[in-house]
Design a binder for these strands. Structure first.
Lengths: 230, 230
DNA sequence: ACTGTTGCGATACACCGTATCGGCAAAATA
DNA sequence: TATTTTGCCGATACGGTGTATCGCAACAGT
């Protein structure tokens, strides 16, 4: 018996670990959305039986938590700009960019407290940038207000993007985008203010809309940081 | 043969319609959360085969849309206070109250464009209150910024509430609430700013936190409505 | 070499959303 | 009125899901 007829040992798949599981799940979600992530498919992508995953995660929700935290590694900026305002804006922008790369993040954003190490690091960086600018309560309110804003704004942006995509790529025009339904409703005359907006409103791209709202909120925060009592 | 031995006609269940379906689904969701809503259970609650529902809705997502719109009927205030600021604040508050009554709404808020009749009525009322205070673009930005804020804030509030509930009703204390994990992480010293907040931060109840942030955002909006260019 | 232990994969269960189809009752026609 | 047509509604079925359970096989220890 020579080497040639001795069968090769089966090439072991790379050893399994949380990181590989999360990476596979994220790949799946990037391709087909959150609903395309099933434990069976994740396992299949790793050439492994589904039950194997339960040694590393105890529930599907936990996997989602890990995915969210993994993306927070992309959100944490490599080097912090100095100004508190720049820090908050950057946090918002990077979260938005990450969500545009991983649209499924919009479905998870704000859905659970984020306590993973990467998310904590992001929070830490933000808090550090605001440290000492006002009393703790004011600082907390500032951080939470800004993050409530961008969480909501990002979710809406993705929601609209999906709707446009679903109704067939029509972008500018509500009436054509959402089909005859909206036109019919507006034609009833029961929604004059809405009709005016749809008719006369100029189209603003999502990015500047996001940035403008963010600037407003940051202005508000600036005022409160200056005079915490107000 | 008398009346007495003639069998009664089988008591027809009330005729099915969208409204009854949505009501059943909402009841289910109120009791057990969104995940407790399945077409089979909704149908069972109406004494009907599951397939029957497909005459009124074409997909489960559509049912969710209907549920959201139904709740918007609770959100629309019966009579509008006059001031634009009061209108926006009321919209935010009523949305929050509705979400506290129907926690599952937090999972859906901002997830899809809301185009149902009740949601449109709410938007109409809001836009009407701001009509003429500034150019259309500024007004839109105002409405969207405020609603991005309260959407995000409500979602976070419910997320925290659920986490507290899940970790066993401990409220004030992160360390005990989220278990030894957070304490351990904070003990590493890698998150000094966070540790300071956890250690020194005073507990603020969710409602005032929500209201404070909302006031900040409204202040910002007021400034922009006054000087639209700024 | 034999035995004990432990981790892993196959199997199983209950449930899900929804496509399909067959029969029955009511409505329309002759 | 008798007959045909139509349209609705329920049963059945399919392919999927998350996860509990359990038996076996490979390894470790004596």
């Amino acid at each position: 018996m020579t080497v040639w007829d001795r069968p090769e040992p089966p090439t072991r798949p790379a050893p399994l670990d949380r990181e590989r599981i999360v990476a596979a799940a994220i790949a799946l979600a990037d391709e087909g959305g959150l609903e395309a992530v099933s434990l069976r498919k994740v396992a299949a992508r790793l050439d492994v039986g589904p039950m194997r995953l339960y040694q590393y995660i105890s529930t599907k929700e936990e996997l989602f938590d890990l995915m969210v935290d993994e993306v927070h590694a992309e959100i944490l900026p490599e080097e912090q700009p100095g100004d508190w305002r720049e820090v908050l804006r950057t946090h918002a922008d990077r979260t938005r960019q990450a969500t545009l790369r991983h649209e499924w993040l919009a479905d998870l954003l704000g859905g659970r407290p984020t306590l993973g190490p990467n998310a904590l690091a992001v929070t830490e960086a933000t808090l550090a940038a605001l440290d000492g600018l006002a009393d703790l309560d004011t600082v907390m309110r500032a951080v939470e207000t800004v993050s409530a804003y961008f969480t909501g704004a990002i979710r809406r942006e993705i929601a609209n993007l999906r709707a446009e995509r679903a109704t067939g790529l029509s972008k500018r025009d509500w009436q054509r985008a959402y089909g005859p339904y909206v036109s019919r409703v507006l034609a009833t005359g029961r929604f004059p203010a809405l009709a005016k907006v749809v008719h006369d409103g100029t189209e603003v791209d999502a990015e500047t809309s996001f940035a403008t709202g963010l600037d407003w909120v940051l202005d508000a925060v600036a005022a409160k940081l200056a005079r915490p009592s107000a």
